[in-house]
Design a binder for these strands. Structure first.
Lengths: 362, 362
DNA sequence: CTGTTAGCGCATTCAC
DNA sequence: GTGAATGCGCTAACAG
């Protein structure tokens, strides 16, 4: 029929391409034609394979330039059965701690020519499960995850599908995977011990739910510190919940509204700390006269509340970098035994001049 | 030859799949065989297409279940020539403002069955260019970007390639695209006007570089406020730089070390504000006795420094949601004229009890 | 060294 | 309603 047009020709032909420069994407075939070589040669040149004459190499490079060619990663991924994308599943993108981790991971991935597919589960197990499935469907080359709970069945499916996985910040129980953690127990223990040494006996705890290892471990540190000094662990002084600002606000409010409120409070992460500050502030209470705070403040953003505040700087950058490296390692040696890297947080207890601080914020 | 094995059969066959349940991913063909239908039918069922008998539909669904089948998004993307992934390129993932935007975008995308491919350019034009190219190569269905500069050539290439793009927070000049912005000029003008009305005449400015429209606009608001009150604009009191904490620290330090330091400082975003607080703190200066701060604090995290601090809550959630909606709109109607949505920030000037504040942080 | 060719897993004509 | 066949763009054998 007259109307029978070779669509491929029309759409890929160089002359026509000139007419619609804005819509079309050159294909490898177009480049090959332009350079008068085969597609295989183009592919070889672009993947930096050896055994191509300089002559052809240059012709190809010119053609690529002229056509503004950009190989389709989708097609490539399908063909080689893997992508150069890392999945990163965090449980709360607004938590400055994870924000810092995201940055570190992105950085490290960039250096290794990988890119990052970020998902935010918002501490929601269903969303997490959905995203894990998505990661598998997208054929990501590996997944870094801060688990929402310690035993989601999806974790197992993921590793059983042969996808390299590394857990970050939190531990998972139902399957053996690489993980990079922070020594929360000892950090929490030291913070609370500090309070005890200052004479506090009624110390409140505002920490994340024990569903995550993080919350559980920090609570454990708290308990250990009390035990070590023969102080009673009073359940009414312990509050656990989703580690976000709103919850920190609520939980601290509850503690301060007790008939006999704590004289000091230990908070489990930066967002909980901000919430706690807000609750204290609302009640017109003073720090440290009315209540002392010993807090995780990963980003050290609350520096000007010192010396009331005790700070833990977490090794977020190392955490992210280590995670990426473990992932890449496993991609090369899938049978390598699982590792558990535990990083030490830098405890930074501020005790400097009360007077100077008052000056700044009064 | 005897050894000639149909590899596909071996790897896809149901019986063999049973032997290596952990490694293999079922393919559409496996499902078709299991359900004793054609691959076309499987595809139809899974895409929710009509015209499939309930009989076959159920058989397919069962097979999918049994084989734990998960269609390859990569293959699908290649076939249909588009993915359901949105690219999100932010200029600083650690900036709490963008963090909130990321969350909003992720949320909105999730609701529209899309996922988010996040990149962090770190205010680096080269990295930004690289990531834009990557987006095109990955065939994302659209890109939301907070431009690092107001005229990167890559922006034009992107829209010319037919990719829907929406700029967020910052304006771009060299190509017409949808954008969703915040009314920075008037917000900054009101903040600075507030300072002027309190009697300040030497007001310092610590804002982002004028390379981004954001920095430029906030600076413009500052200048307008001074002009409106016939106050001189003193260049030595204006500092611009990369809008991050370290820079805010440096720039504020410079201002406070002047022979005649400003009596008030206007800071252009949350990170600059934190840096400024640190610089002020280091010098043992008091707020508001020694210096007053009028600051953008998008997340309202510095609430307890009030009343010295003036706060602007930015509509981050609307910003992200609007961006996604514009993107989806353009995907359906590529010829739609460009829109520019300007959102109003909520100015929240705190003037409440100095006494009560002192109580909290003293 | 270089070209030819055969799929990667899926969606979509087009026949039946 | 359903199935067989084609090709999305690319890489990896294999053959020259």
């Amino acid at each position: 029929m007259f109307c029978e047009i070779d669509y491929t020709e029309v759409c890929s032909g160089f002359h026509v391409a000139h007419l619609f420069p804005s819509i079309m994407q050159a294909k490898i075939e177009d480049v090959a034609r332009q350079a008068a070589v085969s597609t295989a040669t183009v592919s070889r040149v672009l993947s930096g394979k050896p055994y191509v004459s300089d002559e052809l190499r240059n012709r190809v490079l010119d053609a690529v330039q002229k056509l503004n060619y950009r190989p389709s990663r989708v097609a490539r991924s399908l063909r080689v059965q893997r992508s150069s994308i890392l999945g990163l599943i965090v449980s709360d993108i607004q938590n400055p701690f994870f924000t810092a981790v995201v940055r570190a991971v992105e950085d490290a991935a960039y250096q290794h020519k990988h890119s990052v597919f970020l998902c935010n589960t918002d501490e929601d197990v269903e969303k997490e499960t959905m995203y894990i499935e998505l990661m598998m469907a997208e054929h990501v080359s590996g997944v870094i995850i801060s688990p929402t709970s310690s035993h989601n069945d999806a974790y197992r499916r993921l590793v059983e599908a042969g996808v390299p996985v590394v857990a970050i910040d939190r531990r998972v129980n139902n399957v053996e995977i690489d993980s990079v953690l922070v020594d929360n127990v000892s950090a929490a223990r030291r913070l609370v011990t500090h309070l005890v040494e200052q004479g506090h006996t009624r110390i409140g705890a505002v920490v994340g739910t024990p569903v995550h290892s993080t919350g559980e471990e920090r609570l454990r540190g708290y308990v250990e510190a009390l035990h070590a000094h023969d102080l009673p662990v009073r359940p009414e002084l312990i509050r656990t919940g989703i580690p976000k600002m709103a919850m920190g606000h609520t939980m601290t409010g509850e503690l301060m509204d007790l008939a006999e409120p704590p004289t000091a409070i230990f908070t489990g992460n930066a967002l909980l700390t901000i919430g706690a500050l807000r609750a204290i502030h609302e009640r017109g209470l003073r720090i440290p006269e009315d209540v002392v705070l010993a807090a995780f403040d990963e980003m050290d953003w609350m520096f000007f509340v010192k010396p009331a505040l005790t700070v833990v700087a977490q090794p977020t950058y190392d955490l992210g970098r280590t995670a990426v490296e473990l992932l890449l390692q496993r991609m090369e040696r899938p049978d390598r035994p699982c590792q558990e890297v535990v990083l030490a947080p830098t405890l930074h207890i501020r005790e400097s001049s009360l007077r100077r601080m008052a000056a700044v914020t009064a």
